[in-house]
């Protein structure tokens, strides 16, 4: 684990996040129930609250690579989105050094547009200038491998024609084109094939040298062991364990 005297890059201070889900309960479907709800002035029927993160606090320091593990729905992705500032915490504060970036499989791309346009739009949205995009476009397309996939130039095809693995490759390639202060990787590599995984792991190591801190969410304990010295185990939205990867992963595997 990093030295205590090393500067922190991310401070998470008692963060809670509550999702409000509209249209989740059965009451909204029928007109009569909606009407009676209006009459009785019952508040927020048809809105279900999901308490995804419940009071998480930790400090991450420069040079650390931190693994985040836990069951599906334990709040890992939500926590990363909060750190990235994409989702404001319902309660608590997150302090960061610079702008954290999130690399995720769910990161949206525009499915009705071609891979080429997605690369350009993604880079522009990340704040690159037109010249930078033009300069990096070739590298990004080549890194993703989409410019010559099974002998076909997939960058000219809409993303809805991509397989999920191909879409993930393109997304990762776009996001990895930039260096980041705090980099968070959310299962971005799980869908890639072996060759692409190796290539992207190498890229992550490079990014980590440039970045202050790297977070990695994964269900593959091997990639957690390979890349992270510290691991945080989230369970039902709270930290169940936080410590050296070996100890935490061992405990997690025992519980499963």
């Amino acid at each position: 684990m990093a030295d205590r005297n090393v500067a922190p890059t991310v401070v998470v201070d008692d963060v809670h996040l509550v999702y409000r889900v509209h249209g989740a309960s059965s009451g909204k479907g029928s007109a009569t129930s909606a009407f009676s709800r209006l009459l009785t002035r019952k508040k927020a029927a048809g809105v279900t609250e999901v308490h995804a993160v419940r009071g998480v606090s930790f400090v991450a320091r420069r040079g650390e690579a931190i693994g985040l593990i836990g069951r599906n729905g334990s709040g890992k992705s939500t926590l990363l989105r909060c750190i990235a500032g994409l989702l404001p915490p319902t309660q608590g504060k997150i302090y960061t050094d610079g702008q954290p970036s999130l690399l995720g499989v769910n990161a949206a791309m525009m499915n009705d547009l071609t891979g080429e346009r997605n690369i350009v739009l993604g880079c522009l949205a990340m704040g690159m200038t037109k010249q930078e995009v033009a300069a990096r476009y070739g590298d990004i397309a080549a890194f993703s491998g989409m410019d010559d996939y099974n002998g076909k130039d997939f960058t000219k095809l809409p993303m809805r024609t991509y397989s999920s693995g191909m879409a993930a490759r393109l997304r990762f390639s776009i996001a990895a084109a930039k260096s980041h202060d705090v980099l968070m990787i959310d299962e971005a590599l799980a869908t890639g094939d072996r060759a692409f995984q190796l290539r992207s792991e190498a890229r992550i190591r490079e990014l980590r040298e440039e970045a202050g801190t790297v977070f990695l969410v994964s269900h593959g304990m091997k990639s957690i062991r390979d890349t992270c010295e510290r691991t945080i185990w989230l369970d039902k939205g709270i930290i169940k364990m936080d410590g050296p990867t070996e100890e935490v992963v061992a405990a997690y595997e025992k519980s499963a």
Binding site: A7, P8, T9, V10, V11, V12, D13, D14, S57, V59, C82, I83, A84, G85, L86, L87, P88, K93, I94, Y95, T96, D97, P100
Partner: peptide
Amino acid sequence: LKDLAARYGLSVSG
């Protein structure tokens, strides 16, 4: 935690 963040000049995310 708040003090720690302030000491190193971290800003509130988002």
